[in-house]
Design a protein around this nucleic acid. Sequence first.
DNA 1: GTATGCTTTCGGC
DNA 2: TTACGGCCGAAAGCATAC
Length: 368
Amino acid sequence: MVRVIGHLDLDYFYAQVEEVQNRSLKGKPVLVCVFSGRTEDSGVVATANYPARELGVKSGMPIVLAKEKVQGVDAAFVRMERAKYEEVSDRLMERVRENVDVFEQTGIDEAFFDVTQVTREDFGRGREIATKIKEAVFTSERLTCSIGMGRSRVVAKVASDFRKPDGLTVVMPEETESFLNPMPVTRLYGVGPKAAETLGGLGIRTVEELSRASVLDLERPFGKKLAVYLKKVAGGLDDEPVMPTREPTQFSRIITLKQNTHDPEAAIGQLDGAIDDLQRRLSSRGVSFRTLTAIAVLTDLSTKTRSKTFESPASDLSALRPEISALIKELCGSTERELRRVGVRVSDLTGSEDQTSLTQFLKGQQAG
DNA sequence: GTATGCTTTCGGC
DNA sequence: TTACGGCCGAAAGCATAC
């Protein structure tokens, strides 16, 4: 059976939402920024539109550096509002879901979908559905997106990245090799800078070179599991299914301290807002957690965490302030460096999802 | 030896 | 020359159980 899989990517998402909501921004560089609040311009660029990118602005770039890139140009620096983008994303992803067999959202601005059934394995019909999805996205929110279609998740993902913004790339199954072969291995999902470096050491830079390597050669540096995966991916034959979107498995909130400190009390004192915020997110979803983690980002921007798992799920995070305190003290005690950012994470969640499946299960029991 | 669970780090967007 | 967020899921590393 040939699968027909798609990957959708919303173009420069946060910045595009800002353009749509404020038409005067259209055409000029728009930089959506996370202002950390430490100094007036401390923070980074989350997303920038294409005019900004043409000037050298990149995601993750410090705001002060981005300012240099756009100096002398009429550019807009907009504060990021995540909740706003989530609302837009939720509405629009629902429009996408209506058109496919299986829908899996993998981020606020991207999703995989499987249309094998509805297309009856016909990529021509796959193109039609992709076009329909693009029209639905534009009609509902005035946003453009880029879609890639292929025989596997990795092919679809590489294809959605191939032409953008507002792109549609359909890779027929028989075109898979010729499409992937010239690509640098870094384009493949699962091959980051570290794996690329290791592959480079083996003389492997392109997908074609990777596809010619033997699993045995890859096994030594990568281990069996990853070696087998890399070989499959290189041929566009990865067989991971598109699975329905799962409930989140963790929530976290992290803040930048007003100033670096090695004093746990000073750090905890600035964490109350984050704790309250997390508590609200848990309560509104009716979710409990079993693992509590304190996160610290040190002065060198490295991350350290300390966590604690309870025997039974907890739902009142505010009541666990002493535990959070203890974890942050552990973090401070584990390093000579000062803390730059601190945060809290809850994971090993139970609640809405499990209750839903329990309800489903009980319904099944009653019916049977 | 392999499965499982927990902690910590890594890496993508 | 430097500059530097806030999330998320997955991998890695380790211990324990069978």
